[in-house]
């Protein structure tokens, strides 16, 4: 394994030029600055195992409105700094007095970090087709430093989750995951996400999640007369994700289920 756990102050390398996030340079040597997993291949960096989300320009985040002022929405983005969403960044022209009608305190949006200045004023925008208000599904919170693992290499983990849980999954860079689907599927997706979070630092994650999804599905979608081959209790660990339950509509994706179920059963043989 090319990754190892390091603590702040651990010596990493002499290769100062390739020192990257999570490291610092002193006397021509590279040291770890955070407690996390170090990778030394061409790019020397340490990925922290915990920590808050620090906004970067271009990130897509799930923000929750905490305040409405006369021309700005102030949003919580799970970081030490609030996000500011100016009225002009709303997709359509609205009146200052109507701001709360379109987006009120407690509602969540998918937003793009438009800019972050040196004193960490964070500007958000909704001017993109992918962005907008979140009206259904659930939001699950995970440690922001684990977001890359949730996404996987070029989105492989998300695809895996989507295909197997029948939910739509969106991972915000700030560690909020938005899932939509029917209630049962979302419960399942939540379990899988908790497992990914708990085991993200162990190698071979994708394989383990794949087998976990298959096994769990044997139990969840059991049809009368069908005996799953493997019927082990699988420990998922504590569910740390805090759940904000917005009323989910049940009618979605119900018809598709049987089709997908066939596919899954086929997988297991």
């Amino acid at each position: 394994m090319d990754k190892k756990i390091v603590i702040p102050g651990d010596y990493l390398s002499d290769d100062v030029k390739n020192a990257n996030d999570g490291t610092y340079v002193e006397d021509g040597k590279v040291f770890a600055a955070v407690y996390g997993l170090a990778s030394l291949k061409n790019n020397i960096k340490v990925v922290p195992l915990s920590g808050r989300y620090i906004p970067k320009r271009g990130d897509i985040v799930v923000a929750t409105i905490s305040e409405v002022t006369h021309s700005n929405w102030i949003a919580d983005i799970r970081s030490p700094y609030d996000g500011l969403l100016h009225i002009s960044e709303f997709p359509k022209r609205i009146d200052n007095d109507d701001m709360a009608k379109h987006l009120n305190v407690g509602e969540s949006v998918m937003a793009l970090v438009k800019d972050v200045d040196p004193i960490m004023k964070v500007e958000l925008t909704l001017n993109d087709r992918r962005l907008g208000r979140i009206d259904e599904g659930r939001i699950i919170e995970v440690t922001p430093s684990k977001v890359p693992r949730m996404i996987g290499r070029s989105g492989s983990m998300i695809t895996l989750l989507k295909n197997n849980t029948n939910c739509n999954v969106f991972v915000g860079q700030n560690g909020r995951i938005w899932i939509t689907g029917n209630e049962k599927d979302m419960d399942f997706a939540e379990k899988a996400i908790a497992k990914i979070e708990n085991e993200s630092h162990v190698s071979g994650l994708t394989e383990r999640i794949t087998s976990f999804l298959k096994k769990e599905k044997g139990e969840n979608f059991e049809e009368p007369g069908y005996e799953p081959e493997i019927k082990e209790e699988i420990e998922t660990g504590e569910e740390e994700g805090k759940i904000k339950d917005t009323p989910a509509d049940e009618e979605t994706v119900k018809e598709d289920k049987s089709g997908i179920l066939d596919e899954l059963l086929g997988d297991e043989e």
């Binding site: 610092y24 955070v34 407690y35 996390g36 430093s145």
Partner: peptide
Amino acid sequence: ADAGIPMK
């Protein structure tokens, strides 16, 4: 360190 705070 456990909180993921960058330190020397």
